[in-house]
Design a protein around this nucleic acid. Structure first.
Lengths: 280, 280
DNA sequence: ATCCGGTGTTGCGTGGTGTGCAACACGCAT
DNA sequence: ATGCGTGTTGCACACCACGCAACACCGGAT
């Protein structure tokens, strides 16, 4: 909608693949060098890109900082984290927490299995939306038309032979998931990895996040993993309960805890009624 | 430099602190609602922001993905990571890897101590540049004028009584660090935390990254931490060696190691570093 | 030393484009 | 109903981002 901003933002994915020189950028955007220069300069002023000693451009530090800060401020994540740790300690496998944003599902927290793994893993990365257990859980309780519409838009890459092949199969799977209240991914993304996921439900009963545990086939078989399902669901429910209980700081004008007034009759608090969520 | 982009980018830090409505954004930028709307729309098209069900805006998934990808593409990080893990396993403390970008120093990798710690920690966050050991190491071998210039620009917050108080003290400290080839932070950031850091040197002998270990005072005293210094330096050197070893196609015009040309006299390479140090 | 191709940088006039305005649409509370 | 506070749309103006051309700089080749 805004040409200038549009161009500027197009630079970022470009640089994500690796450093690029001014002219490479200009050619990629199909604009004049001077234009690219100006865009890069403003990006640089905001710390979004960084100029290497060899004059080529890279993504900048501020970008990390932003992502960092945002992830930390995701309120679900805050209340969920202790539960993830607990769950991880209990079962020993990798635990993930994911949310949906537009047409993507991203991991926003993770606890590694006890085996040594590189960190970062894929926090912030979009997950394989058509196969991941967390994605199924989150998409399953979209309103019907949206679900259908979304399923149509998606691609269905065949990560493995067991990947969801097409929209029809996906919608069927989502219906099943919606029905049963949990989801699995049995080798649909990585041949040897199984996952089981359950929804974290917000105040209105909708899934605000999804919780999953993943384990390689060789460690625990699919059936054995399913035996952990109750634990996963219980944890997810606990998170949900805590989340709706005290929705955090997001509500600017709310009665102070130190408020001495007894507030005799019209006490609004006991039932945090549905759809109370985000008020401003 | 570019007003539109400038405004658009200013929105991001705003949203990093938490969700905001259209009008809040407009007021913060001091622009008309419609303008803010257009900016937000283009940001949204690029996945940089995300519109919550309640119509407020948040930072979007693409931003996380970008930050993620960027961090993973930092070539130093790739070769360094195994070494970090090893070092972490050897000493049991928290290990950090940091690089400098413009006027900031950011952690790009981390291995937690064996105590349970929240992940993410501060990867991607700018460090306290005037006190952190890694920052000292990285800034210490900037060329003299730049160092002085940078020191002048910085703020000197008093995190603790032991924080670097001002530019003069900082420059002295940097000189000392440059001399000895390593740095410490003894309670300069958090009263109870000590760090020791060493530079990872690239092909030209300049520090391309900094490696550090941190531990709370109560676990190991400062003197005891210093006893680990040789290990840190050795690890940092090992990373540097491996890094320059296989230059990752990232260096377009620099002497190949397999260069057949004898280049008889004016060979620039033999002295990589101005300060030779006893390597172990 | 001189040229040359390639790259980054600067200043400038023009027109596209981003801007603020005003009017509208919607939800919510009074 | 009425008002208020939002988010949204269309439009005319002027500003600002655009491409151009000329310059500055570097390395390599002649």
């Amino acid at each position: 909608m805004s040409q200038t901003v549009d161009r500027a933002l197009s630079i970022l994915p470009l640089l994500a693949r690796g450093p690029a020189s001014l002219e490479q950028v200009a050619r990629s955007l199909d604009v004049h060098k001077s234009t690219a220069l100006r865009l890069l300069r403003t990006l640089r002023e905001h710390g979004m890109v960084y100029r290497q000693p060899d004059q080529r451009y890279r993504l900048g530090a501020r970008l990390f900082a932003l992502a960092q800060e945002a992830v930390e401020n995701l309120d679900v994540r805050a209340v969920a984290h202790p539960h993830l740790v607990e769950l991880g300690a209990a079962c020993g496998h990798t635990v993930h927490l994911a949310v949906r944003q537009e047409d993507e599902v991203v991991y926003i927290d993770k606890v590694d299995s006890r085996y040594p793994v590189r960190m970062y893993s894929r926090i912030g990365r979009p997950v394989a939306i058509t196969v991941a257990a967390v994605a199924k859980v989150l998409l399953a309780d979209l309103p019907e038309p949206e679900r259908r519409e979304l399923a149509r838009r998606l691609d269905y890459p065949r990560h493995t032979p067991r990947s969801t092949p097409d929209a029809t199969a996906f919608l069927e799977e989502l219906a099943r998931v919606r029905e049963q209240g949990w989801a699995t991914d049995l080798g649909g993304h990585e041949e040897t990895i199984n996952c089981v996921a359950a929804p974290v439900r917000g105040a209105d009963g909708r899934a605000v996040a999804a919780l999953s545990i993943s384990a390689p086939n060789v460690v625990v078989g699919a059936d054995e993993l399913l035996r952990l399902l109750p634990l996963v669901r219980r944890t997810a429910d606990a998170i949900g309960a805590e989340y709706v209980g005290r929705s955090p700081a997001d509500r600017p004008h709310r009665h102070e805890p130190s408020h001495p007034s007894p507030r005799p009759s019209s006490d609004p608090s006991p039932h945090p009624s549905p759809h109370e969520e985000n008020r401003t």
